[in-house]
Write a protein that binds this DNA or RNA. Structure first.
Lengths: 149, 149
DNA sequence: CTGCAACTTAAAGGGCACTTCAACTCAAGG
DNA sequence: CCTTGAGTTGAAGTGCCCTTTAAGTTGCAG
């Protein structure tokens, strides 16, 4: 078996077939086709999905993920070097995000804790270096509600 | 002036009036009413909105935020101690999230970098301690696209 | 060659966090 | 008073990330 059907691929990727089709429409992944028009996935596509899942956990939009993936070669299977380059890029993003959250953590204690939580003054809420202001953005990315209390 | 109109409150809170009405429908904030049925906000409600904004930056859903806010007293204005208790709770959540992302960062380099990024084996993608698996959840929480390349 | 699970598509639906719209009312200054 | 900007409501719309459904096709086991 050289390639995978969407069902098999979905199981291995840990993602629904419908999501895979969606990703394909969005230009995030690609698949070959049989004579009868059914998708056949190369194993290397699993890495793409893996990358997408990781990036999502970090809170990146599919739009940005697509941009990142666009830096991979189109005509050949990405090498380890390709992935390394990409991962280095994301590592930086991730680190920026971590730094952000660390500051948030530090200020949360000092700022809310002290009761100063004023919209006007508090640099937690009105940061000069704008944290991640644009658009609305929720999601239960954070805590697996297990540890909730 | 003791209370604020929705317009003034919105400006001070740095959030649209429509969002404030939405939050109220969701039970996240409260407002008094004039004889003519217009909302009048106490200044102390600003702290609630501040808290909501912070929690959102961390990636928490409004549902969870409401739960957290539910621990504040209903019959009186929350004291600094109330906010301190709440912030301590969130600090723990935030720290868990930071730890998660640090692991993500560390493994990203080692795991994608080395090319091992296999769906089956990689504990980045299939973590035993399930990171934040439930539901789909994107958002551009992460990077202000400024530093993108 | 047949039968059935798995596949295909386009289109509609769903949850979240809002925003926008239409139609209407209120509050405050001149 | 009257005007006008600001506020009110419910309902519909938006963007993101998918899932579901309907109607039909493919592929492999028996």
């Amino acid at each position: 078996m050289e390639t995978l059907t969407i069902g098999d691929f979905a199981v291995r990727a840990g993602i629904a077939p419908s999501a895979l089709r969606y990703y394909e429409r969005q230009g995030l992944i690609r698949a070959g086709r049989t004579g009868g028009n059914q998708r056949r996935y190369e194993r290397s596509e699993l890495r793409r999905v893996a990358f997408i899942k990781i990036a999502q956990q970090v809170g990146v939009s599919l739009d940005e993920i697509r941009e990142a993936l666009a830096s991979l070669p189109e005509n050949r299977t990405p090498t380890k070097a390709d992935w390394t380059r990409l991962s280095a890029h994301w590592r930086r993003k991730l680190e920026a995000r971590i730094t952000l959250m660390e500051r948030l953590r530090d200020e949360l204690t000092g700022c809310i804790g002290c009761g100063c939580l004023s919209m006007q003054r508090c640099n937690l809420i009105n940061p000069k270096d704008r944290l991640a202001a644009r658009g609305a953005g929720p999601q239960m990315l954070l805590n697996p509600p297990d540890q909730d209390g």
